[in-house]
Amino acid sequence: MEIKQTALAGTLESSDIQIMLSKGADGIKINLDSDVKKQFGTQITAVITEVLQKFEIENANVKAVDKGALDCVIKARTIAAAQRALGTTDKPAWEVL
């Protein structure tokens, strides 16, 4: 799926993650800011990538600012960002959930 427009989901509050998803040309590129990047960076990146792959998004730039989000939160925020970016918010993606 092609990203139609940049989209933002999530907040910068504690235990949340802010995801900005925009058009990319060269695979899925994730730029992650997190206080726990050293410990959980790989895991956070993996969760984001997995969601995007389920949406069949092949090219995207992701700017993620993590404030200690759990995996379920990361997943939820990425789904929200993906649906906004694809312009499909009116069609819940059950198979991804």
Binding site: L8, T11, L12, E13, S14, Q18, K67
Partner: peptide
């Protein structure tokens, strides 16, 4: 601070 920035960004 984070709340303000995140609200404005949204």
């Amino acid at each position: 601070f984070n709340t303000i920035i995140s609200e404005l960004m949204n």
